[in-house]
Amino acid sequence: MAEEGSAVRAVAGGSTAAKQIEVPIRKAVGPGDDKVHTWPHLVRSEFICAILVTVLLIVWSLLSDAPLEEPANPTKTPNPSKAPWYFLGLQEMLVFFDPWHAGVTLPSFIIVGLMVLPFIDINPKGNGYYCFNDRKYEIMTFFLGFHILWVSLIIIGTFLRGPGWNWFWFWQPWDVHKVEAMTAVNLPYLLGVRNPTLDFFVGAALVIGFFVGGSALMYWWVVHLKGREFMRRWGGVRFGITAFLFLNMWGVVLKMLMRHLFAIKYIWTTPWVNI
């Protein structure tokens, strides 16, 4: 059944009718009666908005000065050293993951994940208007990634991390001598595995199990929620990419919780990388 104003477009490489998705191709060229002249209606708002924002910016700049500290001194490391605020979410991840993962892999996933978003989301509804009910899961996932992970980690990194990247509440003074016991252990160790070889395999099983089990669960859940027909239209590639990115997102949350609640350091240690 075709949605109103949508057409059926064959997916590249799609064999026959089996692989078709519904894609709205409507452009904003409906009946002219909904339209108004750009001049004056749009230009006027833009002009007023630009003036207001510029005035605000000037007032802000008159009231508060950009910081300038002592001259650069490569031999004197400040404690804490913080990245610019918009990267503090990533710096916060360094607590939980090795630098190659927190600093390179996860940011790549964020960028690639954002870029593939229009291609993995095949819900034709909710195009061009605000509506929660038409696309609950998309919106909740975006909230998890953007608000919960990105924004709250920036807030933590900016306000709650002090010397030694230790946790300080708003009312606690920054004590440079604060020492935190390094009690974190690896998950296999916590589960009673003390043999280093076995540790490797248990860790691998946990990580692979998380992704395989998670994907299976997600598959079941989507089929349960939307039906087989939807899953067929969505296709294996889209499902695979979505599940992988989605599980990575939850993986980050899970690992953060495990560290905060159970002091777990790594899940899987290998001679090359640790996760």
């Binding site: 910081p67 300038l68 500290e69 002592e70 001259p71 650069a72 001194n73 490569p74 004197k76 490391t77 400040p78 050293s81 913080k82 990245a83 610019p84 990267f87 990533l90 710096q91 630098p99 927190a102 600093g103 390179v104 940011p107």
Partner: peptide, 15 residues
């Protein structure tokens, strides 16, 4: 080229 800038960029680029 003050303390804030070189250390923020050091931390940001360590990745």
């Amino acid at each position: 080229w003050d303390q804030l800038s070189i250390w923020a960029v050091t931390v940001g680029s360590n990745m």
